[in-house]
Amino acid sequence: MSIILQIETATTSCSVALAKEGLVIAQKQINERNIHAEVITLFIEELVHAAGLTYADVDAVAVSCGPGSYTGLRIGVSTAKGLCYALDKPLIAIETLEAMAYGAMPLAAAYNKADILLCPMIDARRMEVYTALFDMQGNRVKATAAEIIDENSLATELQNNPILFFGDGADKCEAVLGANNNAIFSPSFQNNAAHLSQLALKKFNDKAFEDVAYFEPYYLKDFIAGKKAL
């Protein structure tokens, strides 16, 4: 009976969940920019205590590994690696967009469209987003990429399938894609550590673990620090 501690910090959402055999038994979340470093370890401690567990009861740590916010990913992955070192537990990495797709499946199912596709989007500033495309079985239809969205984006896919757009990058894309009848937007979606559960359980059962010493987040793009105004 596996118990996996799951961490999601790739966006403005800072979320922690505990899952037993893929079912969430406890979770904490806050959606606020630049607060991850302040609350992540507190959330984990509170969650383990509230579930009536000790850290020794945790069998693995899973982390949403990107793409996403450079700072958020560093905090989440560093926290996960620190726990794995201290507890001698395996590290599981879950791509953020794939976890988002699994989290959005109940939203997509409500539209009752058998051919609907899932398009998670993470804000990468201006009109650029980190995105991919999945079907309702979790199969990847379009590879993860950083893309600049315009009125011609996903034109072929939108011609053939309804697509559910969600995530903090989808809001800014509705203005250019929303006129298409096959484009559906879900403004209520938020990244959550609970979305990692099924993917983390599969990797745990397959023993698909990361090298704790050398694992790094999946940034997709190089980090460019902005200059402060004088």
Rank of each mutant, 00 (worst) to 15 (best):
G138H: 04
T96P: 09
A51Q: 13
I184Y: 11
I40H: 13
L133G: 10
T54M: 14
H49Q: 12
K228A: 14
N161V: 02
K203E: 03
D150L: 02
F209V: 14
S186F: 03
A183E: 02
A143T: 07
Q137N: 05
G169C: 03
F204S: 05
Q137A: 05
Q190A: 14
I163H: 00
F185M: 04
T96E: 12
E157D: 08
K202F: 00
Y218Q: 14
I224C: 09
S64M: 07
L201A: 06
P187D: 08
L118D: 02
M105W: 00
E95R: 08
Y70M: 12
I75K: 14
F165E: 01
L164S: 06
A229L: 05
G82D: 03
L230H: 05
R125F: 09
M105R: 10
D168Q: 09
A183W: 01
A109C: 01
L5A: 09
I94T: 07
G52V: 04
K228E: 09
K81S: 02
C119Q: 06
E216V: 07
S13K: 05
I4L: 01
Q27S: 13
Q6W: 15
T144F: 00
I35N: 07
S197M: 04
F166A: 06
N31C: 10
V77A: 00
Y55L: 15
I35E: 07
K228T: 07
Y70I: 15
A17R: 09
E174R: 09
Y111H: 09
S186Q: 03
S186V: 07
N191L: 15
K202C: 01
A51H: 11
S15L: 13
A194T: 07
R126H: 12
L53R: 11
Y85F: 11
A213I: 07
C119N: 15
F209L: 13
A60G: 00
L164R: 01
V129S: 08
Q29C: 15
K113Q: 08
K228P: 02
V39S: 11
A80N: 06
R125Q: 10
K89I: 02
D88E: 06
P217I: 15
